[in-house]
Design a protein around this nucleic acid. Structure first.
Lengths: 184, 184
DNA sequence: GCATTCATGTAAGCTGTTACATGATTCA
DNA sequence: TGAATCATGTAACAGCTTACATGAATGC
């Protein structure tokens, strides 16, 4: 359901193709929502059928034709309903395979356990760096669609969330490495 | 796939029923893996078919009969393979609907935005508290199945991860509330 | 007397992934 | 010349959720 609402939120800024949506998901919402191209097209199809969006065809010569989607009044209602009637418990319904690995890590020798934690740290740092890119692309997106400064505040808050969480994860990894070195 | 490996990891400590597994998932792995009862039974069925586990029937008088599952050699191989050949990128494949809400929160009036953040804080605190319970149940689990101290170290590390992350989220929420109050 | 625990499942449906398929244009 | 960009999809499958179904025993 959240993909549907994410699409509605973006189309609320302006009309777009599936391809445009995909790029914005990859560049700006990537930290908290990974999406596959194929699913965007499937979802747009469902949303068209249920009347949340409509589309017009644009014939192009030197490029494949486009389907440009726009949000309907029904879609706008759905977006606002989702935003204001959100059940907070849903967000704490996590699936973190990495922590499952940690839970059972005693099955592996100490050296392998430490290697895994180092890999985790490395990946955390990479992800944290890519958040900076997100901040930049958010800026260009702001120029293309005439989105106001206040929207921008919220986009930056999601980036800030990522920064703080990755910092906490890195702190945890250092602590874990110390514990394993000392107690194991 | 991670549910499969979680089940293998638990059965590696000792033989159990689907019901036992469910309780342990709820009490000890709940922070990072929410599971539905029905899915455990489906998964145990699949795993039996693929030879990762076997089960024996135990007829009871005053209780429903039990299917007691045990891990096979094939299952143990699968568990070790999963632990040592883990692709770290997989863990950063997130879906966080709450952050999607934040991204589009400018659609709502300031007061509603602030209300949502307060609700988030409250839920974070609740989840953080329930981590303490996890720590306790891990202790009783340790007594039932003769799991060694070193396993316990890793279980506690997953709890520590939760603590640090929830602290970061709470810090973020306070920051977000300030930003909204000042800039909006 | 009512809620919880114990104990197992089925069926339908939704969500998401992987793999496949096409093909011109533009940039380095 | 080869990679990336633009642009859209289909089919099969895996994973997970929701709702339904049963029923005795135990604890408050």
């Amino acid at each position: 359901m959240a993909l549907k609402h994410g699409i509605l939120g973006l189309l609320n800024y302006g009309d777009m193709t599936g391809y445009d949506l995909m790029k914005i998901f990859e560049k700006s919402l990537h930290y908290f929502w990974h999406v596959k191209t194929s699913q965007i097209y499937l979802e747009l199809d469902n949303m068209t059928k249920s009347g949340l969006v409509v589309f017009r065809k644009e014939i192009q010569e030197s490029r494949p034709n486009k389907n440009i989607f726009m949000i309907t009044e029904k879609g706008k209602d759905e977006l606002r309903k989702w935003l204001s009637h959100y059940d907070m418990k849903k967000s704490f319904n996590m699936k973190n395979e990495f922590l499952m690995i940690i839970f059972f890590l005693n099955e592996l020798p100490k050296e392998e356990a430490l290697r895994i934690l180092e890999e985790y740290k490395e990946q955390c740092m990479k992800e944290k760096d890519s958040l900076m890119d997100a901040n930049e692309t958010v800026q260009t997106f702001k120029d293309i669609y005439s989105v106001n400064k206040k929207d921008h505040i919220f986009w930056q808050l999601t980036v800030k969330h990522g920064e703080l969480c990755y910092e906490a994860c890195l702190k945890w990894a250092d602590y874990a490495i110390e514990v394993i070195k000392n107690k194991l």
